[in-house]
Design a protein around this nucleic acid. Structure first.
Lengths: 125, 125
DNA sequence: AAACATACATAAAACTCTTAGGTATCAAAT
DNA sequence: ATTTGATACCTAAGAGTTTTATGTATGTTT
């Protein structure tokens, strides 16, 4: 009869997350070598303390697109009867990851200046 | 016969800017009291050294929407025969600005952690 | 006179994401 | 036993935002 509240803070209104999905995927896959879709959603949820929750409707089509663009490669694995599709970054994907992450970092700095934010005082609990 | 290069760095691939337009507008109008559309595009371009260039096709409809939502108020002025439409933030607009800027700051911090960025070493020239 | 900058505006198309639905396996609780 | 919840994949309609393209008009610079 009690509802467990996992995360104190709200989800971001999703408009901000737009345009960051590919960057997030590339970064995680560069760090972890190989991951499957569902694992990516859970990892992002954990790492962001629930603040960013990727929807499957956005994730899967994006993974498929990135594979067809040659950024990711796949290998299927069976866990009992259940299918798992692992994604890894290709050489191109690694290059792209570098670009994307760099671009995002610069974008953040530009926005920090534009919005006159003092990130030194910001603490995300 | 020489082309003047105003800005060294590239524009951001625009996907990142998505979702930040309203925040930028509210922030600028809170600081400047009143601004007109074209002025907003130029100010953002200058403040970001050409990295963010708002398109008019995105800006004007957004300003209209924000006015109809009660976030902004307008007053028309004539410079010779040319029309200028000044926008100011309403009381609601000011509250919204606070929320939006805060949300963006938290989002940036979350992304910093997620992408493992070291912003201390980042210098935007 | 032409080109460029100022200043507004709209509308079709493109792009990305949400919402909503579907299938199926496995574990835990009722 | 069966329902619920978690795991795991997927697609498609609709919503929302932005780009691209276009239009109008005035003022300034070349």
């Amino acid at each position: 009869m009690f509802v467990e509240v996992k995360y104190k803070t709200m989800l971001y209104s999703s408009e901000l997350i737009k345009g960051t999905l590919r960057t997030i995927i590339l970064k995680l896959l560069c760090d972890q070598q190989k991951m499957y879709g569902y694992e990516i959603t859970q990892t992002v949820k954990d790492l962001t303390k629930g603040r960013i929750q990727l929807t499957e409707g956005a994730l899967y089509p994006t993974l498929h697109a990135m594979e067809s663009e040659g950024l990711l490669t796949t290998e299927v694995e069976y866990i009992g009867k259940r299918v798992r599709k692992y994604y890894s970054v290709s050489k191109q994907g690694k290059a792209k990851a570098g670009e994307k992450i760099n671009e995002f970092a610069e974008f953040m700095e530009t926005m920090r200046v534009l919005l006159n934010l003092d990130l030194g005082t910001l603490k995300v609990q």
